[in-house]
Simulated assay, not measured.
Amino acid sequence: MFFFIFQVFTWYGATIEMDGATETDYTADVTPMVSYVNLHVVLDGRRSRAKASPPDDSGSSQGPRVIVVGPTDSRKSTLSRMLLSWAVKQGWKPIFVDLDIGQGSITIPKCIAATPIEMSIDPVEGIPLEMPLVYYYGHTTPSWQHYINFHWFELLKSSVVHEGNENPITKRIFLFCINNVELYKVLVKELAGVIDRQFTGNVESRALGMVINTMGWIEGVGYDVIGL
């Protein structure tokens, strides 16, 4: 069974007709949509300036690179899709980079991926794909640290690294945490390298920029991973 969440925003008011039962429906009094649209306008202006800049000026000809960061279930992927769809309606074809291995907006979970967006994103059909760049990671989180309290991980790290704890189970858990994070970093850097080479060799693509959707792990090592 599939469940869909739809959000409808209008500047002028609208009448919505719903067929069938819904789990919940409501009209919100406060919306961040004005801020989102203002952000879209700024990004549109930067793309226009980048496209008009001399191709040999790598600084001014670089379009906006937007990274959407926040905790789990904070609508990061929704904002990413809106910014991309609005850009497409203005005639741009930005790159969408999905680093959220727990959800998988472009392909399937456990992967990081990137693809140019050439059509508005359908809320049901999802992102139209031709040849996405995909790296399979194999887990829905980079580390067990995502599941345990950050304070306890620091105690585990101190026990193994600083106090020389030789307990094999303790060491195995610690190494598993660290190695999974390192693999994630390697894949993200590889993906970033491919995109950078694309931008270097394609002036038009560089001017369009990209929107990056991240995972919900934003504390401790998760914060460091975002800042790669």
Rank of each mutant, 00 (worst) to 15 (best):
P168L: 09
L208A: 15
S58W: 11
V160P: 04
T72I: 15
C111R: 02
Y12I: 02
L156C: 00
Q7Y: 08
Y184Q: 06
Y223G: 14
V161W: 11
S53W: 01
I106S: 07
A87Q: 01
L208H: 14
Q62W: 01
T22H: 07
D57P: 06
E163G: 08
G201T: 04
M215T: 00
D73S: 04
V69C: 09
S74H: 03
D73L: 02
V186M: 08
S159F: 03
Q7T: 13
T15Q: 12
G102T: 06
P32W: 11
R46C: 01
L187Y: 13
V69M: 06
R197A: 10
V124S: 08
C111L: 02
L228F: 11
A14K: 12
A52C: 05
F174K: 02
T31P: 04
I218C: 07
M82L: 14
G104T: 02
D25T: 08
F153H: 03
L79Q: 05
Y184N: 03
V211C: 04
G209S: 08
I173E: 03
Y26D: 13
T214S: 10
S48M: 12
E23L: 03
I108L: 14
N202I: 02
I121T: 05
A52K: 07
L129I: 02
Q103L: 15
V160L: 09
I173K: 03
S85L: 00
H151Y: 14
V42K: 15
V203L: 05
S48D: 15
G45F: 14
H146Q: 13
E166K: 14
F3C: 06
I226R: 02
V221N: 01
N180L: 12
V186D: 09
V97D: 00
G104W: 01
V37R: 12
V181Y: 01
S105M: 13
S58K: 12
S159D: 02
M210N: 01
